[in-house]
Design a protein around this nucleic acid. Structure first.
Length: 464
DNA sequence: GTGTCCCGCCATTTT
DNA sequence: AAAATGGCGGGACAC
């Protein structure tokens, strides 16, 4: 009985088409009015027409549909001053994905902030990137609160670590004890009450005087939420001495010992999801551990140094021989269409018209490049995170020989960037990209980094 | 092969 | 009851 919403099963392509037809999202896309030089050249409205498979319609590509990319686009689309409210459906439509995916993103975005439930009283949304305001409605807050959120998160993590529980984060250390992992479904329905040992689960913790002694189903569910997992994952980085972990390790750490193959697998899957969006935010970065071996993730947005108080530290240069192979988010406009093994590719209709858009970009690019040669001011104050390339080697003692090549990123980015519109919405999105480019440029070619972009914005503005 | 992780079914929770 | 959320894991890609 697939509920009424079975309709949602419509592929992205269809959704996109629908969007094109109805251009419903207008309402929430208040075209930015600020400096818009390149803006003029508005990308052509929609569907290129025949578009056949032959032209530019490259077959299904997993990468184009990654959560990370989606998140990236999401941020590009909504991280602006004039955006306060985000509609779930509009977002989905604009980005050409189904709701479900938006939930994924929003969940981790929301959890990167602080205040997620702790002490119900303060729960200040200021420290979140985004908050849910109402059903189908989110409010964009921005990245301003992230530094503090991370600090707070770290504190809490440390407290927990040294304090009570060994190192289990607030998640299910429960399973640790129970020989058998928390079996929700299978087996005992009482499970809920059963594994309530770890008490301080979730985030509405203990400090609550009349702590609701019994965990509810909802809590149990929350324990497994992407959001909580995200926080715990981040905490891991914040408290760890080493700053890189493979997802397997992370899963193990977060899960405790009671790892049950299947459980692990699921957890790891989730971590992949999370890691991808965190990567797109540049909070972490994927690296190749040593030679060969599994890749791992490295924290980039360290809020504070182990010792130094809150010395706003930035990412340290890649240690030793780790090879960064981060994904180039922002490479594609959207997770357009097409199912994995789309047998029925009637997707033709959703077209991607690339040319004019490409021109704009090209211009943009050349402008950037031409100006790129200029010196790089460094009076810039970075936030806690910052582009991997623009590090400031303080405490870290010694600078790094291998200067990170940022420009290169730009290259690849622009090279691979092929605007493909399927509707007005995407056209707008593209416009945002152009703007984003400008901003990035202002970052002195230090890297395309959303977080940085944000933090540096104010400081950067007068350079434009 | 193995590692990634998209996709969407369907259980839960909220309206 | 319907709609909104969001676990979860099968299995399609990527390497």
């Amino acid at each position: 009985m697939s509920m009424a919403m079975a309709s949602s099963s419509s592929s992205v392509a269809e959704v996109a088409a629908a969007a094109a037809a109805s251009a419903a999202m207008e309402s929430t896309l208040p075209h930015h009015q600020q400096q818009q030089e390149v803006e003029e050249a508005r990308p052509p409205p929609m569907l290129a027409g025949g578009g056949g498979a032959k032209s530019c319609h490259h077959a299904y590509s997993r990468k184009e549909k990654s959560l990370g990319l989606l998140c990236y686009n999401f941020v590009v689309l909504y991280n602006r001053d004039d955006v306060e409210s985000i509609g779930l459906d509009e977002a989905a439509k604009s980005l050409g994905v189904e709701r479900r995916r938006i939930y994924d993103i929003v969940n981790v975005l929301e959890s990167v902030g602080y205040g997620c439930g702790s002490s119900s009283d303060s729960n200040s949304p200021r420290e979140k990137i985004l908050v849910r305001k109402a059903k189908n409605r989110y409010t964009w807050i921005g990245f301003d609160g992230v530094p503090m959120a991370l600090r707070e998160l770290k504190e809490r993590a440390l407290r927990e670590k040294s304090g009570l529980a060994p190192l289990q984060t607030e998640q299910q250390s429960a399973s640790t004890m129970s020989n058998d992992e928390d079996d929700d479904k299978l087996g005992n329905p009482d499970g809920d009450i059963e594994n309530e040992k770890l008490s301080q689960t979730v985030d509405n913790p203990s400090d609550k005087p009349g702590a609701p002694r019994c965990r509810l189903r909802s809590d149990h569910r929350k324990e497994k939420s992407l959001g909580l997992l995200t926080q715990n994952f981040v905490k891991l980085f914040l408290t760890m001495e080493v700053d890189t972990v493979s997802l397997d390790e992370a899963a193990k750490l977060l899960l405790g010992e009671g790892h049950e193959e299947t459980n692990m697998r699921t957890k790891v899957r989730r971590l992949y999801d999370i890691a991808n969006v965190l990567s797109s935010l540049n909070l972490i970065e994927k690296i190749q551990q040593g030679d060969s071996r599994k890749p791992a993730f490295r924290w980039l947005g360290r809020a504070a140094r182990p010792n130094a108080e809150n010395a706003v530290t930035v990412a340290v240069p890649p240690p030793g021989k780790t090879v960064s192979n981060k994904r180039a988010f922002g490479t594609d406009i959207t997770n357009i269409a097409v199912h994995r093994s789309n047998q029925d590719s009637n997707i033709q209709k959703k077209a991607k018209l690339a040319q004019s858009g490409g021109d704009i970009l090209k211009n943009c690019k050349s402008v950037v490049q031409s100006r790129l040669g200029q010196g790089i001011k460094s009076g810039f104050v970075y936030g806690p995170f910052h582009p991997a390339g623009a590090r400031k080697h303080e405490l870290d003692g010694g600078n790094k020989p291998g200067q990170r090549e940022r420009a290169e990123d730009w290259e690849s980015l622009s090279d691979s960037f092929r605007p493909q519109y399927q509707n007005q919405a995407l056209g707008d999105l593209f416009a945002h990209y152009v703007e984003a480019w400008k901003t990035w440029y202002s970052e002195f070619a230090q890297g395309s980094n959303i977080m940085q972009q944000h933090f540096g914005q104010s400081a950067v503005n007068h350079f434009l």
